[in-house]
């Protein structure tokens, strides 16, 4: 249970997941925010209107996935590091997954690293396709990873060999 282990349940993940059709049509945001806390930078950072207006600062984000273009600006704006972008259209067998990263070393583009699931367990090898700071001067990086399609919704972190 999320409140006991820090790991969200399958049902919770499914509830925030865009539809299969939307996932199949291009990059889209996945917001793993399950607790009402006073926080709204996802909504204020998004220029596309993908995050619906907050009526109360404690609201959970509500989405219009059709408006998301996968720009990823929300990834670095989320103080909870709870936002990811998945592009299932990348290739036949692989998806692209963008995650926030605040650790050293920052991997280099082309590196093969371990993909970790929400429990921190290694579930496969992934290739780092792109590395960029989430915003000007930001120390949160956005890593875009090539992951096997069946792991696109499993991998949420990486382990870089020192």
């Amino acid at each position: 249970m999320l409140s006991k282990s820090g790991v969200p349940e399958k049902k919770q993940i499914e509830e925030v997941m865009p539809s299969k059709e939307r996932l199949a049509s291009g990059p889209v945001v996945i917001v793993e925010c399950f607790q009402e806390i006073p926080c709204d930078p996802c909504y204020t950072s998004c220029k596309q209107g993908c995050f619906l207006p907050f009526e109360d600062i404690n609201d959970l984000p509500r989405m219009d996935f059709e408006k998301c273009n996968g720009c990823g600006i929300c990834i670095g704006a989320c103080p909870g590091l709870a936002i990811f972008i998945v592009d299932e259209t990348y290739s036949e067998n692989q998806a692209l997954l963008s995650i926030p990263w605040e650790f050293k070393p920052v991997p280099a583009e082309g590196d093969i690293v371990e993909g970790l699931n929400r429990k921190g367990e290694t579930v496969g090898q992934v290739r780092v396709k792109k590395v960029r700071p989430s915003a000007k001067k930001s120390t949160t990086h956005v890593l875009t990873l090539e992951v096997p399609k069946d792991l696109a919704h499993e991998v949420r972190s990486i382990k870089v060999k020192q």
């Binding site: 006991k4 820090g6 790991v7 590091l81 429990k119 921190g120 949420r156």
Partner: peptide, 23 residues
């Protein structure tokens, strides 16, 4: 306590780095 007191997003981000949380 039987539950995590921290914001759950904070808990999830240490958990996915492999740190167990024992309530």
């Amino acid at each position: 306590l039987p539950n995590i007191g921290a914001y759950h997003v904070h808990a999830s981000k240490v958990r996915r780095m492999g740190v167990p949380i024992w309530t």
